[in-house]
């Protein structure tokens, strides 16, 4: 009894880099239970359940096909417009959800965080994983759509790449970028809530600044090197490369800045989030 296993030191002004990773490992059971909880409860009291995701994906791409494909006449890199937007939406929507989860992490969990200690990174991480369920449904819709297109039109060459097994790595990069950016917003808007308004605006802006509704090949070559500094350029173009078979932006020129920026944003976001969570219940 006298030999205690754990020692907790509570003091002021701890290091910004003190992430309490040891505690994180102790709470892995909680992480899995939370993911399970989200799976179990996400479609409670709906009639169509996960079919809503299917409907949303199809309707969203149909609208894009009409507006950007037919009316604005944007190129789709040689892919059928409907498949092009279905794929773009898949990557973009996962990024958008994770960014939303991150930017609301401290605010949405105040009820829990003000009552019990556990590693504050667990709720946003578990939610980012459980929201993958939606992406999985979208992926199935996309694969079925590709199959249908190929069986109907002989000239279509769209087919998932042999590198498809790298998809989890790409998903991980998407999640890290979304969480990192979200954490910065969440931490910064604890005291002054103005920034959470900005987050909505920012999301729209990022969407048009990234090649979601247009392929990177549409952009004049001299501007492409600028766009490489938007980490989402590489991410979205890579989703197309893996799922549709070819794209222009899945090259080292885009990959290197994208990966470096993603990792730095994630690291910076975590530091800010971790520092803010220590006393933020005093402000909210």
């Amino acid at each position: 009894m006298t030999l205690f296993k754990t020692l907790v030191l509570i003091k002021a002004n701890r290091s910004w880099l003190d992430f309490e990773l040891k505690d994180f490992l102790k709470y892995t059971d909680l992480l899995f239970l939370l993911i399970r909880r989200d799976f179990v409860t996400s479609y409670k009291q709906t009639i169509l359940g996960p079919f809503w995701v299917v409907i949303q994906a199809l309707a969203g791409s149909a609208v894009f096909t009409v507006i950007f494909g037919k009316i604005a006449n944007l190129s789709t890199d040689g892919h059928p417009a409907f498949l092009f937007y279905l794929c773009g939406n898949l990557g973009w929507q996962y990024f958008g959800s994770v960014f939303g989860i991150g930017s609301n992490a401290l605010q949405a969990n105040i009820g829990l965080f003000s009552k019990v200690y556990f590693p504050r990174l667990i709720p946003p991480i578990s939610q980012s994983i459980s929201t993958l369920l939606n992406s999985l449904i979208q992926l199935i819709v996309l694969l079925v759509a590709i199959f249908v297109y190929r069986s109907q039109f002989a000239e279509i060459t769209t087919l998932p790449s042999i590198w498809l097994w790298l998809l989890p790595v790409l998903v991980l990069q998407t999640a890290l970028l979304g969480l990192g950016m979200g954490f910065i917003i969440s931490a910064a808007s604890v005291k002054y809530r103005d920034l959470s308004r900005l987050a909505g605006l920012l999301t729209q802006f990022i969407m048009y600044a990234s090649p979601i509704i247009y392929p990177i090949s549409e952009i004049p070559a001299r501007y492409q090197s600028f766009l490489a500094y938007n980490p989402l350029t590489f991410i979205v173009e890579s989703y197309r490369f893996l799922l549709l078979g070819h794209s222009t932006g899945c090259t080292l020129q885009f990959a290197i800045p994208s990966i470096i920026i993603t990792l730095s944003v994630f690291f910076f976001g975590c530091i800010l989030y971790n520092h803010t969570q220590r006393t933020y219940v005093d402000f909210v």
């Binding site: 296993k5 020692l7 006393t279």
Partner: peptide, 16 residues
């Protein structure tokens, strides 16, 4: 309970 941090001083807790 480690919900918020002190402004100064410290506390040592031994055990779960």
């Amino acid at each position: 309970s480690r919900i918020t941090e002190p402004t100064s001083g410290e506390a040592v807790l031994r055990g779960k």
